[in-house]
Design a protein around this nucleic acid. Structure first.
Lengths: 114, 114
DNA sequence: AATACATTTCAACAATCGCTGAAATATCCC
DNA sequence: GGGATATTTCAGCGATTGTTGAAATGTATT
């Protein structure tokens, strides 16, 4: 990943409503959720939501598919993976462990189905 | 780290010149480097650089100290650490390894989450 | 004190951002 | 087809962003 790509993804996440949308979609999992549910859940105007979804989608952070009248949006964890890799590779003095702390703050051994 | 703090840090990094400045300071290491060197290295106008340094500093991504006529700026890796932790904790479906492949698990096959 | 050096401050300005509300598009159901 | 539902498109708007260039500030040297 190049710097320019990182900037675009960082910008997509650097807005409270968009970060909320992305986090909600991460929670929703691979099946995603329809735009209407997102708008309801985050109390956003439909047109404002579309605006932000477009920007998330342009950067590859989310995907969309149609299901009847609904548009189903889903997070692309891979994109977040790429961003985190970029940050740890380029912003940690060549010592990833400086930015990639051992899982002390992270949820300990959540042991989800794998 | 709260969402609002993450947004602020993401926004600070979501600009090409600022990301370049931060990366340069990361390379420079704990001793940092004077503003003039940054401006020269990245070919930025002094006043534009000050503008961006202020924003990086406001978010805690860099520190500054005076040395004679020079202002020495240095990256705060800890702030990047916090950001990466936030992203892996909140944007990876409770499975940090999805967004942060550790060296030893990098080759492991990622199974589909369901 | 006078001068040079390093950086910041400030007032502009164009460009972009995020929001609102009305209209348009797409799909489903009768 | 007609009506209801889900979402997008679009114009307009105030607010914010990033840049420039001139002036101001702070520090070292003589």
């Amino acid at each position: 990943m190049k710097s320019a790509d990182a900037v675009v993804i960082l910008a997509a996440l650097a807005q409270d409503n968009r970060l909320d949308v992305f986090r909600l979609l991460v929670e929703a999992g691979p099946d995603g959720m329809p735009a209407g549910h997102i708008a309801g859940s985050l109390k956003m105007a439909p047109s404002a939501l579309t605006f932000h979804l477009d920007r998330l989608r342009d950067t590859g952070l989310i995907t969309v598919r149609r299901d009847g009248r609904s548009m189903i949006y889903a997070a692309r964890i891979e994109a977040m993976n790429n961003l985190v890799s970029y940050l740890t590779d380029h912003c940690c003095q060549g010592r990833p462990e400086l930015c990639r702390p051992t899982p002390h703050s992270a949820s300990r051994k959540l042991q989800k189905a794998r």
